[in-house]
């Protein structure tokens, strides 16, 4: 019995990691309707930055996280201003081609700069230990992930659903012309939103090194999974995404424990099945 609880806790932690990893994508996709297949590559960029800051720069891991968040956010803002804003009114195909190209280029750059080998990051020892919670052994890092995920979800839900900024964003997405007509500076809103999305990608990447590892294939390895989680959660919906990520994390952990031969086949099967039944996700904002 206590085994099942450990597996469930693992699943929840993994789900939170998936949430943190995918939430930036949900923001850019759901709120801006930009199909960013380079999201995995942004996360990879953030992860490599964390590795450099912690392992070479000697910064503590927890201090590196906000720096990564800001740096990838700034990079995202520059990219949006420079290139991506020209792609909003193009078709899905153009956005996909551009962002795949960007992902290939970033992945190749990572190979050139860091080599193809796996990278690790130094986690503070107080996070590495195992703690006993209600008679169940849980690693500190998992608790940390769950807390970070919950905090991020709460902050984003507040930002997008309860602030003026969030209301403006939703207005601009629903009807850009009308939003501009009542004086909302849509251009500026979109830069900020894209920067938030990129910053969250970088943060998610940095947080996932410990559990998923890091090498240049990172840019594509989890992309399908991320896109599917966002699709199921309903792009732009923080609660939907959280539910989808937790559900998948738990399903994945259960299958890994009870039926390891099935591998990620089950996950993709579940994802495709949900998409077939509910093509717009569990609670989608976009049509």
């Amino acid at each position: 019995m206590s085994n099942v609880i450990v597996v469930l806790v693992d699943g929840v932690a993994y789900g939170m990691l998936l949430f943190l990893f995918a939430v930036g994508l949900s923001v850019t996709l759901g709120l801006m309707r930009f199909i960013n297949l380079a999201h995995g590559a942004f996360a990879m960029g953030g992860a490599y930055l964390a590795v450099v800051l912690v392992n070479d720069g000697g910064l503590p891991f927890l201090l590196a996280l906000p720096l990564v968040f800001m740096a990838t956010g700034a990079a995202g803002a520059l990219l949006e201003r420079g290139v991506i804003r020209h792609l909003y009114d193009r078709g899905a195909l153009q956005q996909v081609l551009f962002s795949i190209g960007l992902a290939f280029a970033l992945s190749a750059t990572a190979t050139i700069a860091f080599g193809p080998q796996q990278q690790g990051v130094q986690i503070p020892s107080w996070l590495m230990g195992r703690h006993c919670v209600f008679g169940v052994q849980i690693s500190g890092y998992r608790v940390f992930l769950v807390a970070a995920g919950a905090a991020t979800a709460a902050a984003l839900a507040y930002l997008f659903d309860y602030t003026l900024f969030g209301a403006r964003i939703r207005a601009a997405v629903d009807n850009r012309v009308a939003a501009e007509g009542i004086g909302i500076k849509v251009d500026r809103l979109f830069v900020t939103t894209f920067a938030i999305g990129s910053a969250l990608a970088g943060l998610g990447g940095a947080l996932s090194i410990e559990m998923l590892g890091l090498d240049p294939t990172f840019a594509f390895k989890y992309l399908t999974m991320l896109l599917m989680i966002v699709a199921i959660g309903g792009a732009g919906s923080t609660e939907g995404l959280l539910m989808a990520a937790l559900f998948l994390g738990v399903v994945d952990a259960l299958f890994k424990y009870f039926l390891p031969e099935a591998g990620s086949f089950v996950i993709f099967g579940v994802l495709v099945a949900v998409l077939v039944v509910r093509p717009h996700g569990l609670r989608g904002r976009t049509a």
Binding site: V83, L87, Q94, L97, F98, G101, F104, A105, T111, I112
Partner: peptide
């Protein structure tokens, strides 16, 4: 690796 880099750049420009 330079192939992948080149491919990415060509893809971005092609848009």
């Amino acid at each position: 690796k330079y192939w992948q880099l080149g491919l990415g750049i060509v893809l971005m420009l092609s848009v």
